[in-house]
């Protein structure tokens, strides 16, 4: 009896092994592919990150602390937070509105609107920056009018913010559109039949259904807003007052500061990026857990 069961067990075992072998690559290929992937990631992603931290602390803790707590660094940090703090909420509002109208309604010019939204992805940020210099600069009528009324846009925080908004605005809307499209409008219709009004439907049905996609979009938008360089450098001018963190790092690197200073400041951005990544992975995990439940 026990012999029989053991025989059966081995039988099943070899059966499963056979199945497994039939559907996987040989070990050599497996290890080769893994090695290539790990090497590539190490050289291009991990190594630079380690270098940043290594260089930052190379000249000792004191110099690191000095660079990080420097007046200009704090001002750049403030500028980055200001620009990001205005950009993200505005892009959330815009993104929700645009995704709602594209995802839930049929109208003429829909694909045109979609391509418009993609413009910031398509054109170089430097060109975007130049565009704003043309619009808000004194050579344009609008720029002239702004100057007459003593409103500073270029080379001041509004310019930096506007450039950041422009560069980051597809992120939220692009995350929301596929989700809204796949969910259709039946739930909203059901809510409407049950007597719910527009705002109520949005807050209680539409918004909770896109919650995770929205958060994901916010994370991506936030990461890009903090790190944007190209568009901002054009509109910020050459003043320490309007520097954001990436601009400040560049200035330190080009200037005569301590060798470790740009790296020290860069660690701030790197840490913010890592935090963003962790939050992003958490949200992805949440989304997949939710989908698995379906």
């Amino acid at each position: 009896m026990s012999l029989l069961t053991r025989a059966q067990k081995t039988d099943y075992g070899s059966h499963f092994r056979a199945v497994k072998e039939a559907t996987t690559e040989p070990a050599a290929v497996k290890w080769f592919l893994i090695t290539v992937a790990v090497l590539f990631m190490s050289v291009f992603l991990l190594l630079p990150l380690i270098c940043v931290f290594y260089e930052a602390f190379a000249s000792g803790w004191e110099l690191f602390k000095k660079a990080v707590t420097d007046r200009h660094t704090l001002s750049a940090l403030k500028m980055t937070f200001l620009a990001t703090g205005i950009t993200v909420p505005l892009n959330v509002i815009f993104g929700l509105a645009a995704a709602w109208c594209i995802g839930k309604f049929q109208f003429v010019g829909k694909s045109f609107l979609l391509s418009l939204i993609d413009i910031p992805f398509a054109i170089s940020p430097v060109i975007a920056g130049l565009l704003f210099v043309f619009i808000f600069g004194t050579q344009s009528a609008f720029g002239q009018w702004l100057q007459d009324h003593n409103i500073r846009v270029l080379f001041a925080w509004p310019g930096v913010t506007i450039a950041t908004i422009f560069v980051t605005f597809p992120f939220v809307v692009r995350e929301l559109i596929p989700v809204m499209q796949s969910q259709g409008t039946e739930e909203e219709q059901a809510a409407r039949v049950l007597g719910a009004r527009g705002w109520h439907i949005f807050l209680r049905i539409t918004l909770p259904n896109v919650k995770w996609a929205l958060l994901y979009g916010i994370i991506l938008c936030n990461a890009r807003a903090m790190g944007e360089f190209g568009a901002v450098v054009v509109v910020a001018g050459n003043s320490a007052k309007t520097n954001t963190l990436p601009l400040h790092i560049n200035a330190l690197y080009q200037g005569y500061a301590d060798a470790c200073a740009p790296f020290a400041v860069a660690t701030i951005l790197a840490v913010m990026a890592i935090v963003t990544l962790i939050v992003k992975s958490f949200i992805e995990w949440k989304i997949s857990a939710k989908e698995n439940r379906l």
Partner: peptide, 18 residues
């Protein structure tokens, strides 16, 4: 539609998934 006092059952249920 909300003021007509109708109950409507959709083909694919349209339950609020959250």
């Amino acid at each position: 539609v909300g003021q007509r006092g109708v109950g409507f059952v959709f083909q694919h249920y349209a339950l609020f998934r959250h």
